Amino acid sequence: MHDHEVDIDVRLVQRLISTQFPLWANLPLAPVESAGTVNTVYRLGTDMAVRLPRIEEALNDVEKEWRWLPRLARVLPVPIPVPLAKGEPADGYPWPWSVTRWLRGDNPVVGRLTDPLRLAKDLGDFVRALHRVEAKNGPPSYRGVPLAARDTATRTAIAALHGIIDTEAATAAWKDALLVPAWTGPPVWIHADLSPGNVLVSNGRLAAVLDFGTLGVGDPAVDAIAAWNLLPPGARESFRAALAIDDATWARGRGWALSIALIQLPYYRTTNPVLADNARHVIGTICG
Rank of each mutant, 00 (worst) to 15 (best):
R104Y: 13
T152W: 10
R101Q: 14
D115S: 06
D151S: 12
I158W: 10
P116Q: 06
P140E: 05
V109I: 14
R112M: 00
T114L: 15
L147H: 11
H131Y: 02
E168Y: 09
L113Q: 05
T100G: 11
V109H: 11
T152R: 15
K136C: 09
L117I: 09
R101I: 06
L161N: 08
T114Q: 15
A157Y: 07
I158Q: 11
R143L: 13
P139Q: 05
P116W: 05
G105Q: 01
A135V: 00
S141Q: 08
D122Q: 02
W95G: 13
L147D: 07
G105N: 05
S98E: 12
E134P: 06
V133I: 07
G163S: 13
R128V: 01
V109F: 07
A120H: 07
T167M: 09
T100Y: 15
G144T: 00
I158S: 09
S141R: 08
W102Y: 13
D122F: 03
P96K: 06
P140I: 04
L123T: 03
L119V: 02
R104E: 14
S98T: 05
H131K: 04
W97E: 06
R143D: 07
R143E: 09
W97A: 07
T152S: 14
P140C: 02
A170P: 02
I165S: 10
V110M: 04
H162E: 15
V145M: 11
T152E: 14
L130R: 12
G111Q: 04
A149I: 01
E168Q: 14
A135E: 03
D151R: 12
T154I: 06
P146W: 02
G124L: 05
S98H: 00
A148E: 13
W102K: 05
A160T: 00
D122Y: 04
V133M: 02
